[in-house]
Amino acid sequence: MDEMQKTILDYVKREYLEEDQEITPDTPLISSGIVDSFSMVSLKRFLEKKYNIVIPDDRATPQAFDTVNKICELVRAIQEGR
């Protein structure tokens, strides 16, 4: 697991999960019902602050935020100007 995966995984666990819940970078979060899309606003804010990026609303979709790996992919894409 790289640094970004670890940072985001830790945040997701702290922000959304109860102590007895475990996830991996590939665990579906929104489509599985673990996290609801309404609560994801804080994740977007965290990513923007942590990685100094702006995530356009049309890219902050439930699909793009569904797993830690997909979130990392989105952050990298925006960092690289894609």
């Binding site: 959304y16 109860e18 309404f38 609560s39 606003v41 804080s42 804010r45």
Partner: peptide
């Protein structure tokens, strides 16, 4: 228009 946040 206010910012949104939520708690467990």
């Amino acid at each position: 228009k206010a910012q949104q946040d939520s708690y467990k």
